[in-house]
């Protein structure tokens, strides 16, 4: 039986269609985002037994580092195909064929189906909404005093660790998302939204808060926080934003949104240890200025 379900994340509506009821039971991360209103879909994804890849030409081959996933990109006469694997040394297990404007996607998977579906929806979401005052961020996000604090950093730098230090040591803190929240500018105010994508931490919260600060986490032998200039803040947030910059409309959209956010929100560099003092030093600065 084929079923279609519609979701709304940060105000953008999208749908997923598949005919495997066992898979639906594994997609509980989407449950808080189910949408039953009548707004138009920004994009749709359908899981299909086969996709036509004729005319495929290689555009980009990723070089995943240890523990990173593989995503290779090819062009098709009428769109793109993204080939994915959970790790660089594993064979390709999903083929996502998307239209040029990223509004229509078809996904074929041979294994790791949940990984492929999540990845396909994240990709389509980031690329489709890049020109809509929206950015998908690789970050951990903690809420305190009604504001959202984003912790950025490369994989393994301690974004999640820093969030968990806030949860343990800074009263009133709670986790909104641990890996892929969305920032959207609404009525001129940058807000962080929870999403169905949160890395290894099951934290799927359909809620949103104004951004209090954006903090880049950097492992160091001591705890120290520095305010960034607007241009430094831009570099920091831009490098943590998802999107295929080689497509001009996406690059333009990302640039517009990121540059607007960093002019409205304070950005910091936090040199830190993985200890309670790090959360104290960081929160003393950012809660005071938020």
């Amino acid at each position: 039986m084929t079923e279609k379900q519609t979701y709304k994340v940060a105000g953008h509506v999208f749908s997923l269609t598949l005919d495997n009821s066992a898979l639906w039971k594994s997609l509980t991360n989407y449950s808080p985002f189910v949408y039953e209103g009548g707004e138009e879909e920004a994009f749709s994804l359908k899981i299909v037994p086969e996709v036509d890849l004729s005319g495929k030409e290689q555009l980009f081959v990723s070089e995943p580092e240890n523990g990173e996933q593989r995503i290779d990109i090819h062009t098709l006469p009428d769109g793109y195909v993204f080939e994915m694997a959970p790790l660089g040394d594993l064979p390709i297990c999903g083929w996502l064929k998307v239209s040029k404007d990223f509004s229509v996607g078809h996904l074929m998977t041979v294994s790791n189906k949940i990984f492929c579906i999540n990845n396909a929806l994240m990709l389509m979401y980031a690329f489709r909404t890049a020109g809509m005052d929206t950015i998908e961020i690789h970050a951990s996000c903690t809420v305190n005093s009604g504001r959202a604090f984003l912790f950025l950093g490369k994989s393994g730098t301690g974004k999640s660790t820093h969030s968990s230090l806030w949860l343990k040591n800074i009263p009133g803190s709670w986790l909104l998302n641990d890996d892929n929240p969305v920032i959207r500018i609404v009525d001129g105010v940058p807000r962080v939204y929870g999403t169905p994508w949160s890395g290894k931490t099951p934290c799927y919260i359909n809620d949103n808060y104004p951004v209090g600060a954006i903090v880049r986490i950097n492992q160091a032998p001591k705890n120290e926080i520095h305010k960034m200039s607007v241009v430094e803040g831009f570099a920091s947030l831009y490098s943590s934003s998802s999107g295929l910059r080689a497509i001009k409309s996406i690059a333009d959209g990302l640039f517009a949104t990121v540059s607007s956010v960093v002019q409205k929100v304070p950005c910091y560099l936090m040199d830190c240890l993985p200890d309670a003092e790090a959360a104290q030093v960081c929160s003393n600065e950012v809660l005071g200025n938020a």
Binding site: F60, Y238, A246, V262
Partner: peptide
């Protein structure tokens, strides 16, 4: 590109991923 009146060059091509 230009941000707050300052010029920056950003790698945006596929070869600059």
């Amino acid at each position: 590109r230009e941000i707050v009146g300052q010029h920056v060059v950003i790698g945006e091509g596929l070869s600059q991923v």
